[in-house]
Design a binder for these strands. Sequence first.
DNA 1: AAGATCCACAACCGCGGAAAC
DNA 2: AGTTTCCGCGGTTGTGGATCT
Length: 317
Amino acid sequence: MGRPPCCDKEGVKKGPWTPEEDIVLVSYIQEHGPGNWRGVPTNTGLARCSKSCRLRWTNYLKPGIKRGNFTDQEEKMIIHLQALLGNRWAAIASYLPQRTDNDIKNYWNTHLKKKLKKLQPSVGQGNYGDGSSASQSMPRGQWERRLQTDIHMAKRALSEALSPDQTPSCLSESNPSKPATQRLSYASSAENIARLLKGWMKNPPKASKTSSAITQSSNLAASASGSGHDTASSEGITTTSASKGNSTVQLFDTSFDSLLGFESLDCSSNSDFSPEATLESRQDCTGADMPLYLLEKWLLDDAATITSVEDAGVHFF
DNA sequence: AAGATCCACAACCGCGGAAAC
DNA sequence: AGTTTCCGCGGTTGTGGATCT
């Protein structure tokens, strides 16, 4: 039995997140780290359920997330992995570290499904249908390989959990003098928020009280996230003066003081934080640029093959 | 120009597994 | 051992923007 809904209590806000909420959430996570989601709403004062907070973080605010514009490489990878794993988006997402399961799922449902249907009229009968057929009619050998994939995921998660300071080498090369996790984390959070603010600025809410703070904040976020790519700064947002007596402003000053702990994170000076550069630099260590036949081989072959592929210098984990 | 329809994506919902009690 | 609680996952829905009529 599943548990009853966690968010049926009164006063829980639903719907799109506002920049204010994002800032509060990111600020809190910056301080306490992700996890213990139940405590997030109470500790932050957010009128959101814990689930919503977790979702917002994992799907949107979490550092290192790349959004939109799936490359051909990514697309092929998703198609292959979907055929192998079925609709197990979290597992698929683990091979595309910059993409969230939700993003992949959406992309599959909105783009790839149709694309494959066009290409293969008999798609419903094969592996490239909706994932259920892939997993349900999975032969035993393939099921075992799937299990093996799960084990690899678990191993990876475990090693990450056991070594919080350890990050993939590609992420720590840009500035060896600072903890890579922190550097990437906050820079990317700001980047994500800046992106959000960009959209928000197009249709700012009527409450002018916060808009000046947000405007200021967006500039801060934009500056923190570096320049030259898709951020609020590229939209030509002007800085407006914010009244220091305004409590809202103070809130955001505080939030961004906190957030801009990452102004010391050196992200602005590192042009590699542009989405494109980040992708490229990461591909070196994620295996995203790995030839697909190797990937398939790796997924389909037995453990010995995995070892040999890794020995050849290809490391997913 | 206005309304209808389509599309993409963010967010919600409910379930299952696992940990905590 | 049984129950409750939490987290994560996959399916689905709602909404806003884009396109079409």
